[in-house]
Design a protein around this nucleic acid. Structure first.
Lengths: 267, 267
DNA sequence: CAGTGGTCTAGACCACATT
DNA sequence: ATGTGGTCTAGACCACTGT
C-alpha cells in the first residue's frame, strides 16, 4: 500500500554488520558498543601511545564500514571515561595520565580552599605474598594466586598525610619490582599504564572513621587516637575487572577529602 | 567549481534557529543546549509533575522546529542528570524522587556488604536565623539574608547513626514550617521538589575525620572521642545554584560511606 | 587553505510496550 | 496494529587549528 522509497541501495546496509572482524562478538550489542570495544582492545594492546593522535573519525568510520555518527557515539563514551580527549580542529588523542588528570579525577584530597597538591610518595615496603581471603575475594583472584603488597607514605606540604597499603595481582603485574616503584616519576596509575598497558577507568571507595593505632600513629607522626579516614578503594579497568586494592589512612589535618555526586554534564 | 548539491531547500534551515521563543538566549550555545534549557525551565515551572510522561521526542522536535536527533541530544543530558527516565516503547518520564533514586544516587551510607537502608529521620530543632558568614558565603546569599536551620537525627537499624545540620535559604523555601518537616514522608530532597519545585542535581561533599565532642556524643549515644566522619555537603540545582548546606556527623559503626569515581558508562 | 572535530538534519529500521 | 524510544545512516555546514 504505502509507497515507501525503501532500499534504494539495498545490498550495502545490513551486510556491513557481518563484515566486522570475526573476533568481535556483536550479538546483542549495538554497533557503537562493538566499535568502542574494538577500539579499547587496541588501546589495551598498546597500539597507540599516550598523547598520540588516534585515526580521524572519518578514517575509523570507513575502516569499520560504519557511519561517522556511530564512531562518534563510541568516542563519546571513551571521552566520558577520560580515556581519550578530543580537540576541535586538531584530532582525538589517547589521554596522557598526567598529573592534571590524576589530580582532578582520582585524587580526592585537597586543601580546605579546594586546591590540589601533588603528593610526594615514599615506598616503605614491597613484598610478594599470598593475600588474605578478603583481599583475594575483592580482587577476584583464583585460589593460591599471589599479590604484590606495597606500602607507601604520602607527603603533602612536607607533612605525612596518608598511609597506603596497595595490593596488586602478580598475574597482571608480572615484572613489577621494588626498583620500578622507587625510580618512577608520577603516580602508580601512570606506572600501570606505561609499563603494563593497564588503564584504570573507575574506582569504588569505602570510607570509615577510625583512630590511629600505635603503628599508624608512629608512621604518620601523630598521637595515638588521632581521628583518620580509612579508605578502602578498589580500582577497575575495562569490563569492571579489578586491578588494585588500596587501603589508605588519611589524616585530614589541613586537608580534606572531596568529591561530587552527579555533576558531570551540568546545564 | 565543486558541484555540491547545496541548499536545495534553502529558506528553512538557519531560519529555525531564530524561530525559537524570544526569551531563549541562543547566542554561543549549541541548539541542543538551548532546547535542554527550555525543557528544564518548564520542569522548574512545574509544567509536568513527577512520574508524568513528557511529550514524545517527535512532538518536541516539531514543537521546537528542530530535528529529532537534536531533541535526543538534549534528552541524553537530562537522563545523565537523573532528571528524566526513558523507557523504550513507553515514553520519557519526569523522574520521581523515589527512595530508589535517593538511595542509589545521593545516599552514600551502606552496610558493610554494600546494601542500603532507608533512614528514619527525627527532626530535633527548627529555627530561622541569620547565618554565619561561612554559611552565607557557601550558599551565595546576599548580606542579611536569613536561613532556616534544621537539625535532624537519622536512624539506621534502630540505631543513631547520623546527625545533620541543614541550612536552607529562606528566600528559596519561603513557606517552610516545622510541621512540614515533621509531617512529611520521604526525604528532604523530595520535599524540596514537591513543595518548592526545586530539583537537586548535584552535590559537592567535603569529608573530614573528627571525634565526637560532648554534645554529639550525647545525641548519638556514643562515648566522647568516638571517631566520626564529618561531611560538609553543598547541594545544587540547575546552573550550579546552591540550595542547601548540610553539615553531617556520621558514625561508621556497622555502616560505611561509599562512592565511585568515573564509573558512569563502563564498557 | 585544507583538515579536524562539533553540530544538525531527515529519514530508515529495530526492539519493545500497549491496545 | 500502533506508537514509543534506540540505533544508524549519509551528508551538510560550522568552528577551530594548523599550514
Amino acid at each position: 500500500m504505502k509507497d515507501f522509497i525503501k532500499n534504494q541501495e539495498p545490498e550495502t546496509k545490513r551486510v556491513r554488520r557481518v563484515a566486522m572482524p570475526e573476533h568481535i562478538d556483536a550479538i546483542g550489542h549495538p554497533l557503537y558498543k562493538t566499535i568502542k570495544l574494538e577500539i579499547t582492545r587496541r588501546l589495551s594492546g598498546g597500539e597507540w601511545s599516550p598523547g598520540e593522535a588516534l585515526p580521524t573519525e572519518k578514517a575509523l568510520a570507513t575502516h569499520f564500514g560504519v557511519s561517522i555518527g556511530t564512531v562518534r557515539r563510541a568516542m563519546d563514551e571513551l571521552v566520558a571515561e577520560h580515556i581519550v580527549v578530543r580537540q576541535q580542529g586538531r584530532g582525538t588523542f589517547l589521554r596522557e595520565f598526567s598529573h592534571d588528570l590524576m589530580l582532578n579525577h582520582f585524587w580526592r584530597v585537597t586543601r580546605h580552599d579546594g586546591s590540589r597538591e601533588i603528593p610526594i610518595v615514599q615506598t616503605l615496603s614491597f613484598e610478594r605474598q599470598t593475600p588474605d581471603p578478603d583481599v583475594s575475594k575483592q580482587l577476584d583472584l583464583r585460589a593460591r594466586a599471589e599479590v604484590f603488597k606495597v606500602v607507601n607514605l604520602l607527603l603533602l606540604g612536607g607533612r605525612r598525610i596518608m598511609l597506603d597499603e596497595v595490593h596488586l595481582p602478580c598475574s597482571q603485574f608480572p615484572s613489577l619490582t621494588h626498583e620500578m616503584l622507587v625510580a618512577r616519576e608520577g603516580t602508580m596509575f601512570s606506572l600501570y599504564r606505561d609499563e603494563f598497558s593497564i588503564i584504570v577507568i573507575c574506582t569504588d571507595e569505602r570510607l570509615l572513621a577510625v583512630t590511629a593505632d600505635r603503628d599508624a600513629a608512629k608512621i604518620l607522626d601523630v598521637p595515638v587516637g588521632t581521628p583518620l579516614i580509612k579508605n578502602i578503594r578498589l580500582s577497575f579497568t575495562f569490563d569492571k575487572h579489578p586491578v588494585e586494592l588500596r587501603k589508605s589512612l588519611l589524616l585530614t589535618d589541613g586537608y580534606e577529602y572531596r568529591h561530587s555526586v552527579g555533576g558531570s554534564t551540568m546545564v
